[in-house]
């Protein structure tokens, strides 16, 4: 029974950890399917985490926070778009530059506004996306098996986590069932053909980057106002890069990407549980090694199980009209 309770808690924290991962991985997926590579997911998440937390602290409203978070990430997404689409600059350098600039700018602004050493003040319950207890969760909590499942795993998450559940089918529908999705995929595979058909490659890429920004904005917002209660320095802690790896592991497809995110979320939840646990024979694993776990797993997965990777053919390549 204790094992079962452990498992329920583990799945619960997997879902929590996976929320920003899924959102950013799907953001990256949409951008890359449209032909824009962005390793700056990290920076966009961090920027919107700050914007959301700062707005929540000032206005006391999670809704304004969400708007600010999305606004910040969309703005940075468009900047990246300007660099990669109009300037035909190097997209990896641009992503990296935005990551570094945000890592410096966010604590600077936080310090300027709140004077708390680069953090925002702790948010109270009203100004956050707090936990939603679904009807009947408390009543069912003591029922064996389903009680734990319902009250811990299904109930008790914040609004954005529930919205994330909708993001996956919505993205799949957008990509595969709509005309826009067809054009978006075509722009990532064969922009010349799209251009010949009289459709603007740049416009489609910009539209993709706006969706990208919205998803990153949700991810950042949930980080600082849903899962956490305020912005702290470097709070994205490599999640943007893990999301990128999950997207590649998922071969740029929605369902495999979702599963990869859940796997990373599970490993991260597991490493949290493993800290301080003593094992037979080897004893306690030093915390630094459990921290390494998701990263080592990523490398092993990419090396061993992904097989031949076929990225969208035109991803990362600027489109030049009379080429």
């Amino acid at each position: 029974m204790e094992f079962f309770a452990d498992l329920v808690l583990l799945i619960d924290s997997t879902l929590r950890i996976a929320t920003p991962l899924v959102l950013t991985a799907f953001a990256g997926l949409i951008a890359e399917r449209a032909g824009v590579v962005d390793i700056g997911l990290e920076g966009k998440m961090l920027a919107s985490a700050f914007a959301a937390a700062a707005t929540a602290a000032v206005t006391g409203s999670p809704w304004y926070a969400l708007m600010a978070g999305v606004g910040a990430a969309v703005a940075l997404g468009l900047l990246h778009g300007y660099v990669s689409i109009n300037q035909r600059g190097n997209q990896i350098v641009s992503g990296m530059a935005i990551n570094i600039a945000v890592a410096g700018a966010a604590p600077t602004l936080a310090n300027f506004i709140f004077h708390k050493g680069g953090q925002t003040p702790l948010l109270d319950e009203e100004s956050r996306f707090s936990i939603i207890t679904l009807p009947g969760a408390e009543a069912l909590a003591d029922v064996p098996l389903i009680g734990g499942l319902y009250s811990e795993i299904i109930s008790g998450h914040n609004l954005i986590t529930y919205l994330t559940v909708l993001v996956v089918p919505a993205t799949a529908w957008l990509l595969y069932k709509t005309r826009f999705g067809l054009r978006l995929r075509a722009v990532g595979e064969n922009p010349e053909a799209v251009d010949t058909a009289g459709i603007s490659v740049a416009l489609i890429r910009y539209q993709a980057l706006i969706i990208f920004g919205v998803l990153c904005g949700f991810a950042g917002t949930v980080l600082s106002t849903g899962l956490g209660a305020g912005f702290i320095r470097d709070m994205s802690a490599g999640k943007g890069y893990l999301a990128l790896a999950a997207m590649i592991f998922g071969k740029w497809k929605p369902v495999p990407t979702l599963l990869a995110c859940l796997l990373f979320g599970f490993v991260d939840a597991l490493q949290g549980r493993l800290q301080g646990v003593s094992f037979p024979l080897i004893g306690e694993i030093p915390v630094q090694f459990t921290i390494m776990l998701p990263y080592v797993l990523t490398v092993i997965i990419l090396a061993g199980f992904v097989g031949k990777i076929q990225a969208p053919r035109a991803s990362g390549i600027p489109y030049e009209k009379d080429h």
Partner: peptide, 11 residues
């Protein structure tokens, strides 16, 4: 932190 931001902008 601001110096880090300036570096990012230079990059």
């Amino acid at each position: 932190d601001l110096i880090v931001m300036i570096q990012g902008l230079v990059i």
